[in-house]
Structures are given as C-alpha cells and as structure tokens.
C-alpha cells in the first residue's frame, strides 16, 4: 500500500487512516503551524476544537481547525500566515 500524503505549505507529509491534519503534522515533527495574527504561534492546544489555536487553510474546505479535520490524499494545507495563500484563492 502506498503511503498517502497531504501537502503542508507545498511539502508532502505522510498520514495514516484516521489522522487529523494536526496528528499527521505532529507525527512529522511539525508543531508550529505558522503564526496567528496576534503573533502567537498557531499550534495544537486543546485538541477538541475549542481553543481555535490550530487554524489552517485547507484546500476545498477553507479555514478550519487542524485538530478536527481528517486528512485527505493530496490535499493542500497551508498556514494562515503563509502569504501565498489567498492570491490564488481570490482571483
């Protein structure tokens, strides 16, 4: 069985069935998901969708909690502080 991946800011990251974006990223050693607008890091904190600290931009879904969203093969996921984000999304 080939390993399935998501694209994190363009880089392939492997995920397992049942992985959320947060669990796939943290297994890959990625704990910081960019910066929030308050300059604090975006990262997993509560793990159950309450704290809103782990928001990322997910292709086909939009801004969502990394801890609640299951991975989908070849899905592009970007940090909200990634400035390449909206240029493509809004023209």
């Amino acid at each position: 069985m080939s390993v399935q991946t998501i694209l994190w800011n363009g880089t392939p990251i492997a995920f397992l069935p049942g992985d959320t974006i947060a669990s796939a990223l943290s297994r890959a050693g990625i704990t910081e998901f960019g910066l929030r607008q308050t300059a604090l890091p975006a990262a997993i904190f509560c793990g159950i969708g309450q704290c809103q600290n782990c928001l990322v931009s997910i292709e086909g879904i939009g801004v969502a909690e990394a801890c609640l969203t299951l991975c989908d093969a070849e899905q592009s996921v970007r940090s909200l502080s990634d400035h390449r984000l909206t240029e493509s999304a809004h023209d």
Partner: peptide
C-alpha cells in the same frame, strides 16, 4: 509556545491515531 498543549490533546491523538508527537 508551539509544542505546549493541553494534556487532553495528547490523549486524543493517542486514542484516535495510536500515536503521539515525536
């Protein structure tokens, strides 16, 4: 800081995927 989470978040990761952060 990134890498500091609730203990519950680690537990959820463990329960749902069987793995913990590196």
């Amino acid at each position: 800081l990134a890498g500091v989470s609730s203990a519950g978040a680690l537990q959820i990761a463990l329960k749902t995927t069987g793995t913990l952060p590196l």
